[in-house]
Design a protein around this nucleic acid. Structure first.
Ligand SMILES: [Mn+2]
Ligand SMILES: [Mn+2]
Ligand SMILES: [Zn+2]
Ligand SMILES: [Zn+2]
Lengths: 150, 150
DNA sequence: TTCATATTTGTAATCATTTTAATTATGTAA
DNA sequence: TTACATAATTAAAATGATTACAAATATGAA
């Protein structure tokens, strides 16, 4: 989590992105919400509190710029909307079909190591994820059973 | 590739799906196009030749039914539209950013083996894929360079 | 200040998918 | 066969995420 505006500004300037207020706040939000894997909607709704005039378009454009410069990663896992990730280090995900949360997973295996060639194709991105029921939802399901069979 | 309607019919009946003409043709198309990872659009356009009255909705509904029964897999990798896969065995994919093709990749590693628990989460699906430039597009790019520097 | 340019904003358009309701096909009882 | 119930298909409308476009606003140099 990067709390001071100074270092956020430096990150943007290093990539040749002019550090406007909305861009800084979007980057700040991303750095504070690494576990969320937020949607554009989530970012927009939160930033409305600080910047009542901000538009969806700005959030979309800014994230596209960040993505292009490699400041964030993008995950197409739900099939309905894009999820963004401030953690650009190679890691995998778990999507819970029950609660919809996307959880980071550490999996070390040949699949997730290095962007080399695969069957002659040039690899630029590596994505891996699981779908299922998360730990917490499993617990909730067990509790529900208990409650109905006391 | 399953060519005869008889065995296609048996597949659907085994899953409790009434083998209508459109459903059989959609399943036949899927079994013939395992390398494509087709979109609903692709399936619809092809089937129009055989069934001029077929609707998009039927293709959507049928694939949802197939998916529910595990007769096909679904891939959310492009971020724009769903791609379907007749090959339900565990395997990975490569998406070419140039030509848009989705290519099967055999990767054997702990990540792709068995649907067990991961960090306490119940795993029901495993997805892995690479993005980059495919072998053929790499070749084309080299040829373009040659042509402009003869 | 004035002008050029970049950024932000609001609105409209696009595209994949879902919902809804009408139409058609299928099977069975009378 | 006919009549009716049910399932499947179809067409049309609605939805939701994203993109395109054009107007408004901010920034910064001359
Ligand atoms: Mn992550
Ligand atoms: Mn495949
Ligand atoms: Zn959950
Ligand atoms: Zn290619």
């Amino acid at each position: 989590m990067i709390t001071n505006m100074k270092s956020l500004k430096i990150i943007l300037e290093k990539e040749g992105i002019k550090p406007t207020y909305q861009r800084l706040k979007i980057l700040e939000y991303m750095s504070r919400n690494t576990v969320n894997h937020p949607t554009v909607e989530m970012i927009y709704e939160r930033l409305l509190k600080d910047i009542p005039t901000i538009s969806m378009t700005t959030v979309y454009n800014t994230l596209s710029a960040f993505l292009e410069k490699g400041l964030v990663g993008a995950i197409t896992i739900t099939g309905t909307e894009m999820r963004y990730d401030f953690n650009t280090a190679s890691h995998h995900h778990f999507l819970c079909k029950q609660c919809g949360r996307i959880i980071d997973i550490e999996v070390t295996c040949p699949f997730s190591e290095g962007k080399k060639l695969q069957h002659g194709h040039r690899v630029e991105e590596i994505h891996g994820y699981f779908k299922g029921i998360c730990k917490d939802c499993l617990k909730d399901m067990k509790n529900s059973v208990k409650e109905s069979n006391p």
